[in-house]
Amino acid sequence: MPKVEIPPRYRGVTVGVKEVRVEAETVQACLDAVEVVYPGFLELVVDSAGEVRKFVRLFLNGEELSRTTFDVRVDSDDVVSVVTGAAGG
């Protein structure tokens, strides 16, 4: 099953869980599957227009994905990484 890596900043909704294995065939389906288990996750990653939020970057096996298209096929060993920018201020 593909794995979704949860960034430290969004582990409030996953109650500290750092990665989630999901049954899914696309990146979009992976994110949706995490949302089913941990409601509130998806809105942290994607805005109401369906684009990746400005502080988030999505990677598939280390390759950065487009901010608008997640209909990318995943295999069972693939890793979807959700990465957030710096904090501070």
Partner: peptide
């Protein structure tokens, strides 16, 4: 890498929405 965004592009002020989303 990390310097691509967000800070050089927008500064820390754009963390408002992000901070709001995680309480």
């Amino acid at each position: 890498g990390p310097g691509k965004e967000p800070f050089p592009k927008w500064g820390t002020s754009v963390l408002v929405e992000e901070a709001d989303s995680i309480y």
